[in-house]
Write a protein that binds this DNA or RNA. Structure first.
Lengths: 212, 212
DNA sequence: AGAAAATGAATGATCATTCATTCATTAACA
DNA sequence: TGTTAATGAATGAATGATCATTCATTTTCT
């Protein structure tokens, strides 16, 4: 929960802190997608936001912090997306898993700008412990939730001898690989096709719950 | 095939062109892993190779070309790895697929330095058509080969109603996702565990060929 | 000696960051 | 209500550091 974010006062021309920060984070995402992380400069982000040179240091102190906050933003958004998908889904494990697939390939999640951001930070993660921690945390949370869900399905089946943790990791990994295809080869991959690929795995793994 | 790469002449202290280029490419891979692509400078790479400032421009003309050649190097190496795995494998489709799994999680392929390079370039691919083309080409080649293999397995099963292209894309995507886990969370993922995850998919998809 | 490879100081461009100043908004006061 | 002082958001020129690239010179090999 956020401690009542200050809204813009009526008629105010300068934005509140929270608004400016969000505006700059969104500009950072666009800049990483447009120029790549290695050519994303402070001037580029400020220009993308149509604001002045010094604005980022005013709100984020340094470039490094802006980048970390940007990664946190997409990570938080991703978690919020699948939490919401679970809330909106039916009560059966099959329905909940189906909802997660839709969430993973929904517009806001597999938008190529945001995918660029994920892969850019993953690419730097080995040399930057902060990035790696945020990414690993996202992985872990998702994996835990998905393992529970798979365990439920396996018990229902029953599908004897199937390890829920391995299936969950496989599902999560497949999503990430499909995101890569969407980023690198959008002509031969689409969210719809990605979902079909995912469905093939589900049907093969849980034939009593899913069909081709 | 390469047109007979010039070997080092006997007693020569300076390396041949091909040797220096390879040395610099390997230094680039280490630098990307150690510092990230965005902090990989010409001086860093030259230092990593224990050579002088100007050496890269001498052999690669520009930084951009060094990076492209580095990406090409890992891409070529990857293709060579799976081609060799197929050559060394038995004749059955199941054995060939098994060999591909081992290749994908062999030391040279899922070494974290090289994974850093892949993800770094994937992260920049949206803004750099040259990177994207090389990556998409690698994807396409692998996908075609794997689709043929899966088609063979599906016919043998038979596994009616299973689309070989979708299964192949799923398998390739899963590898990429597992590589991400190896890069980002090496404490909870290992090549052995990755292979087990992969095996679960194979067993679920092709129960007449693979078991848990 | 002549050719090729390698060096490393020099150059100019680009970058993140700083900070004195401007501007918009609110609060205080009459 | 109208005026003014105080606040803090935003600017953009200036700074110093870092970077890729060049090239005159040196080293190494034939």
């Amino acid at each position: 929960m956020v401690v009542s974010p200050p809204k813009t006062a009526p008629g105010r021309r300068t934005a509140s802190k929270a608004e400016r920060r969000l505006q700059l984070i969104k500009a950072t995402i666009r800049s990483i997608a447009k120029r790549g992380l290695s050519e994303t400069t402070m001037a580029a982000v400020a220009g993308e936001a149509r604001l002045s040179q010094g604005i980022i240091n005013l709100h984020f102190q340094s470039k490094e912090r802006l980048l970390i906050e940007t990664l946190r933003y997409v990570a938080d958004e991703y978690r919020a997306t699948w939490e919401k998908a679970l809330q909106g889904a039916g009560n059966s494990n099959a329905e909940r898993l189906e909802a997660l697939v839709y969430a993973d390939f929904s517009k806001p999640v597999c938008d190529r700008n945001k995918l660029s951001v994920w892969f850019a930070f993953w690419g730097e993660s080995k040399s930057r412990p902060t990035y790696r921690k945020i990414c690993a945390e996202r992985d872990r949370e998702y994996d835990e939730m998905l393992t529970d869900l798979c365990a439920g399905l396996i018990a229902e089946g029953p599908y004897p001898g199937v390890d829920p943790a391995l299936v969950a990791t496989g599902l999560a990994s497949m999503s990430e690989g499909l995101w890569l295809d969407l980023l690198v080869d959008p002509d031969s991959m689409s969210p719809e096709k990605a979902m079909r690929v995912y469905q093939v795995y589900l049907a093969g793994m849980f034939p009593k719950h899913f069909a081709y």
